[in-house]
Simulated scan of single mutants.
Amino acid sequence: MTAPATTPHARGLKDHPFVRWLFGAVLIGGYLRFIRMTSRVVYDPPDCWQKAQADWPVIAVSWHGQSNLAYACIPDTSNLALLISNHPDGQMAAAMARSFGYRTIEAAGTSDARAQASGGLAAFRGMLKALKDGTTLFATADIPPIPGRNVSLGMIALARRSGRPVFAIATASSRRKILTRVWDRMQMNYPFSTIAFVAEGPIWMSDKAVSDEAYAAELKAALDRVLERAFAIADGKAQ
């Protein structure tokens, strides 16, 4: 006997493509646009976008918990791609990203180890192809299930294999709440803020004498520095 088809209600509203689009593109994307529209953005250094374009394409990375605000502050998204999980939460993020004009590259989001390995390889190849085609990538440096604020060695492998430089990026709003009990210390941003967008780079990772772990430590230090700097600028405490 053929099993009955699973209905959207059985899967849960969160799994329905329309609901993912509604939450991602309309609600999350709309809220980020409202924050951006009602806030003043300070870029540090002021020419950081122009500096990154001089080395285009690049790999731009931020910590996971505070990446969403950066998506709304990038001056031009026409030649950028984001790595997105095919998990329902990732698909909401994908809908949000596409509403801003980003391309998306899907990563694995399944519990099956073999499928996840093949999916991860496909995503890695997709990122390499995007970079080869001249598209800059925007990704988070810490990827679940590793603990937050630790750089995934996959980012180092991508930089080595592609030969493209890495830029560390952080954003912070003056009106915010940090969810300290969440693995990635997620940053909730509020409108009518001063937003700091801080970038550091380029960081080249082509020296074969330097280990992946050493490059990961260097990138972690850069990400921590730009985040601390972003908080200081947003809070009016920068020197």
Rank of each mutant, 00 (worst) to 15 (best):
M155C: 01
M155E: 02
M155W: 09
I156L: 10
I156Q: 09
A157S: 14
A157D: 10
A157E: 09
A157M: 12
L158C: 09
A159Y: 09
A159W: 06
R160E: 13
R161N: 11
R161F: 10
R161V: 12
S162N: 15
S162Y: 15
G163W: 07
V166A: 15
V166D: 09
V166I: 15
V166G: 11
V166F: 15
V166T: 15
F167T: 14
A168N: 03
A168F: 06
I169F: 15
I169C: 14
T171C: 14
A172H: 13
A172L: 00
A172T: 05
A172I: 01
S173W: 01
S173G: 09
S174Q: 10
S174Y: 05
S174P: 01
R176P: 01
R176V: 09
R176G: 06
K177M: 09
K177R: 15
L179I: 11
L179H: 10
L179M: 10
T180G: 06
T180I: 07
V182N: 15
V182L: 08
W183F: 04
W183H: 00
D184Q: 02
D184E: 06
R185L: 08
Q187N: 12
Q187L: 03
Q187A: 03
M188T: 08
P191L: 06
P191M: 05
P191D: 02
P191S: 08
P191V: 07
F192E: 02
S193P: 00
S193V: 00
S193D: 02
S193N: 03
S193R: 04
T194R: 12
T194E: 03
I195H: 13
I195A: 02
A196M: 02
A196V: 01
A196W: 12
